[in-house]
Amino acid sequence: MDSITDDASITNLAQDYSLPGLILYILIAIALWRVFSKAGYPGILAIIPIVNVFILVKVAGYSAWMTLLYLIPIVNIVFSIFVAVRLGQRFGKGGAFSFFLLWLFSVIGYFIIGFGSARYRSA
């Protein structure tokens, strides 16, 4: 008989969620590649896990140092909304689009911005 710790082991979690997680990461990297390219940054930076967040914050118009705000609980949620709204403004999108498609469903929003007709406008 299996014990409860065997069922909740980290290896079981990794086996269950590794393929969907990898697919989601690849989709985000493809979408961010186009977003970075439109903003004038090298698209290859979308593949590197932590660097892509730094570049996304820079594309939104903030200093890359502000990415450190993602390390503070509660502040990271608020800051990610600010980044999403500011990113939407840079690409000519409204607040509702930014909140729902760049924050809640970011994969869809990045694809719309990256492969759509939106153009990047720097401040």
Rank of each mutant, 00 (worst) to 15 (best):
A39Q: 06
I50E: 01
F105V: 04
F115C: 04
S98R: 00
D6M: 06
A31K: 14
R34E: 15
Y120F: 05
S117H: 11
S37V: 08
L104D: 03
I72A: 14
G88E: 15
N76F: 13
F91Y: 09
L104Y: 02
I77C: 10
S3F: 04
L45E: 06
Q15N: 10
P20F: 10
G21T: 07
A64T: 14
D2H: 09
G114V: 13
Y25T: 14
A31P: 10
N52G: 03
V75W: 00
R119C: 06
T67F: 00
D6K: 10
Y25P: 02
Y70E: 06
D2I: 12
S3I: 07
T5N: 12
L69G: 03
G61W: 11
L69E: 02
I77K: 01
L69D: 12
S9R: 07
F100T: 08
G61Y: 04
K93S: 08
M1P: 15
V57K: 02
I28G: 02
V107R: 07
A84T: 13
V57D: 00
T11Q: 07
F99P: 03
G95D: 11
A123V: 12
V85I: 08
V78H: 12
T5K: 12
L45R: 05
D6V: 07
Y17W: 04
R34Y: 15
S98C: 11
Q15F: 11
I74F: 08
K93G: 08
A29N: 11
N52T: 07
F111D: 01
T11W: 13
A123G: 15
L22M: 10
L68S: 04
F54E: 02
L102V: 10
A123Q: 07
A8V: 12
I113G: 01
Y62K: 07
I44D: 00
K38W: 14
A14H: 02
D16S: 11
S18M: 14
G43A: 10
I48W: 04
I28L: 04
I48V: 05
I23Q: 12
S63Y: 10
I74M: 04
K38D: 14
D6E: 05
P42C: 06
T67D: 06
D16K: 14
F105A: 08
F99M: 12
G40V: 07
A8T: 08
V107P: 00
R90K: 05
I50A: 12
D2F: 12
Y25C: 06
L22W: 01
P20T: 03
G21H: 04
T11N: 11
G94W: 00
L19N: 01
Y110T: 00
V35G: 13
I108S: 14
V53M: 09
V53D: 01
K93N: 06
Y110P: 00
I48D: 05
S80L: 09
R121E: 15
I77W: 12
T5I: 12
A39K: 02
S122F: 05
I28A: 11
A96R: 08
A118T: 03
I81Q: 05
I50F: 15
V107D: 06
V83F: 10
L87H: 15
F54N: 03
S3V: 13
L71H: 00
Y62Q: 04
S106Q: 12
Q89V: 06
R34N: 10
A39W: 09
Y41N: 00
W33E: 00
G116L: 07
Q15R: 09
M1R: 04
G116N: 13
F97R: 00
V83M: 10
M1K: 02
F99G: 08
A29L: 02
L56S: 03
L22E: 01
N12M: 09
I10F: 05
L104E: 03
I112E: 00
